[in-house]
Design a binder for these strands. Structure first.
Lengths: 185, 185
DNA sequence: TAGTTTGTACCGAACGGTCGGTACAATACT
DNA sequence: AGTATTGTACCGACCGTTCGGTACAAACTA
């Protein structure tokens, strides 16, 4: 059997890139085919369930990325400040310093919101829960920790929206820089 | 000339509602026709330039809404606290307490971002500028005022994304409630 | 070891359907 | 009557998807 031109992981990454910059509905198979170098028909080998399948696989990758770079570090033992710092550094890389859109954000607009509702909710909830846990370890009471966690995730998502809309990554980069001190003084 | 079944203003509102909840690409002419109760031909009577025209008219309405409820109040004389409070109250109504998505946010994902890039940028910039002005009047120095304005807009947009993704308007409502005190203590 | 089979990777072409958009005759109002 | 408004039929382009294959390397057979 022939070796694939691209390992599946690479194909998934390219599909994800298209979703992130065009949204789910804007990511047509023609564009995905172009981005991956595969024919439209070949995409059905990698993703037998079609476009929805692509969305789910991309969300799989996102979930495990979150597990490794966000939920994991936040849940460890050790100084909360350092755990949060690790999360922030990973987010900076993931979003390319604010140049890349958030996949979760793009999926929450349009029909894809209803299509992936459960999974989006789960990922955001897990993120907020983990962050709230670290803030509680840093001394916040339960309620304040949760509120600050929600607010922090909102600020990050909003800064990414703003970066896209205004072609200005400044607010996002500043936010990541300040968040360490802000959250755990 | 016969009175139109719906005044144009009402048609525009309904088109805007579809854009807000389905995104620009997800807002198909069929759905817009259904939402307005008009046939496709009639839509081209109201919007001779087609879908892009609809987007621009909806952005016209958004701009004048911003002028009346955000830029105007923020630019007035009077206590900054009160000016900001007025903006927050209007935003709460516009976004239906967090239940409705942000039009600007949905337009920044997908092809509509490039299509309306200039106008989106202008609206966000104007919003941030006006808010920074009020914060300066409240005593912040130039730099801090601008940074807090950017962060505030990001928090609002992010809270709306979160509300959509998690079906939870809590963080948005709390944000609006707290923002008055946070910004002008 | 030569030949056959099998299974994966891939693709061109075409499917039915829907997209945004147009032409035009009928309708409804002044 | 004359004109603003609208329903219907239609268009080409593109949508996501499927079909019928080809290329090729590993596995199996003789």
């Amino acid at each position: 059997m022939p070796a694939p031109l691209l390992p599946k992981r690479e194909v998934v990454d390219r599909v994800m890139a298209v979703f992130r910059e065009r949204g789910f509905e804007g990511a047509t198979l023609a564009r995905i085919a172009e981005a991956t170098g595969l024919g439209k028909a070949s995409l059905y080998h990698y993703f037998p369930g079609g476009k929805e399948d692509m969305g789910n696989v991309v969300l799989d990758v996102t979930e495990s990325w979150m597990q490794e770079h966000v939920l994991g570090p936040l849940g460890e033992d050790g100084p909360p400040r350092q755990r949060i710092g690790r999360m922030l550094k990973s987010l900076d890389a993931l979003y390319d310093g604010g140049n890349a859109a958030c996949l979760l954000g793009t999926l929450t607009v349009g029909d894809s919101r209803t299509l992936f509702r459960k999974r989006l909710q789960w990922i955001f909830d897990a993120w907020i829960d983990a962050l709230a846990g670290a803030l509680r370890d840093a001394g916040s009471d339960r309620r304040a920790a949760r509120e600050r966690a929600e607010d922090t995730v909102a600020r990050i998502e909003g800064a990414l929206i703003l970066a896209q809309a205004r072609s200005d990554t400044g607010p996002f980069r500043r936010l990541l820089r300040q968040l360490g001190d802000d959250l755990v003084p």
